[in-house]
Amino acid sequence: DRVSRLAKILVDTFEVTQGDRVLIYMPMIPEAAFAMLACARIGAIHSVVFGGFAAPELSNRIDDCKPKMIITASCGLEPNKIIRYTPIVDEALEISKLTDLRRLIVQRHDVVFETKLNKDLYLDYYELMADTETGIDCVPVPANQELYILYTSGTTGQPKGIVRDTGGTTVALNYIMDIVFNLQIGDTWFSGSDVGWVVGHSFIVYGPLIRGTTTIFYEGKPVMTPDPGAFWRIVEQYKPHSIYCAPTAIRIIKKCDYNGEYIKKYDTSSLKSILLVGERC
C-alpha cells in the first residue's frame, strides 16, 4: 500500500514518468525500499547513492544520471553521531548547479526534524502520504527496461554507472535466492549491508521480496550499536533463516568478542547458514 501510494506521489506531484531517473539518498530505513519499489512500479529508473558519501560524490552521480527529483531523509545514524542529510544534498546541488531540483524528504521526527527547509523544494513525505489515500497500478515494462543505475565507488577513477534491467534482474535473483540460498515463501532473511551497494539492491530489497520472504532492515553496525551482540540480538528477535554479510563483519565481531560471550546470550537456533560475500574469507 505504501509503495503504491508513493508511486502515485511520484507521478502526480513530481511528474515522474517511465524512463525518468530518480536519485535516492537515504539511510537504512524502510522508506528507502519503498522509494526503490515505487520507482520500479511506474517504470522509473532509481539510482541509490550510499548515505555515507559526501556532497562531491553525490554531485558526481547527480551530474551523470540527471535525476528528475531526489528522495532523501533528514538524517542517518552512525555510531556516536548523527549525519544530517539536507546540508549534504543542498551542497551537492549547488556544485551541480541544480538548486531548483525538487526533493521529497522523510523527516525522522524522533531524531532530526529539519524546520528551516524551503518548502517549495523540500516536500514532506509523511504529509503527502497522509493526503494520498489510494495508490497507482503497476506500469508494464519490457524485460530490458532499465530498473536501476548503481555507481561504482570511484576509488579507481570516475564512478561508473552500472545499469541493470528489469527482467534479467528479477529472474536471476529469484533463481539465486531459491537454488543457492534455499530461501522460500514465509522465510525471514537478514543481509547486513546497505541499499547504497549492489548487495543491498539484490539481497535486502529485490531478491528476498521476489521470493515472498521477509527482509530485515538494519541501520547499524556489527559492533558499537551498541555491542558485538547486535547481529545475534536481531537473530533472536526476528528469527532469520540466514545471515548474509561480508567476512569483515564476522572478523570484527570476533575481534571484539573473541570468546563468543555475546552469542551465548541469544537464541540463534533459527539460523541455517551464515553466508559470506564480497571479499576473501
Rank of each mutant, 00 (worst) to 15 (best):
A7I: 01
I9P: 00
D12S: 10
T13G: 00
F14I: 02
D20E: 03
R21M: 00
R21V: 06
L23D: 01
L23G: 02
M28A: 04
F34R: 02
A40C: 07
I42D: 04
G43F: 01
I45V: 15
H46C: 04
V48P: 00
V48C: 03
G52V: 11
F53A: 02
E57N: 11
R61D: 03
M69I: 10
I70C: 07
E78K: 12
I82G: 07
I88F: 09
I88V: 14
S96A: 15
D100I: 03
V112R: 01
T115Y: 05
N118L: 08
Y122L: 05
M129W: 11
T132C: 11
N144M: 11
Q145C: 13
S153V: 08
T155W: 03
G157P: 08
G157I: 05
Q158L: 11
G161T: 05
G161R: 05
D165P: 04
I176L: 12
D178H: 14
D178S: 13
V180H: 12
Q184T: 12
T188F: 06
V199T: 14
G200S: 08
G200H: 03
I204T: 04
V205K: 00
G207S: 08
T213F: 00
T215V: 04
F217W: 04
M224V: 04
T225L: 07
D227G: 11
C245G: 10
A246N: 08
T248R: 13
I250M: 15
I252M: 10
I253S: 03
Y258E: 15
Y262G: 01
T268C: 15
T268P: 01
R280A: 13
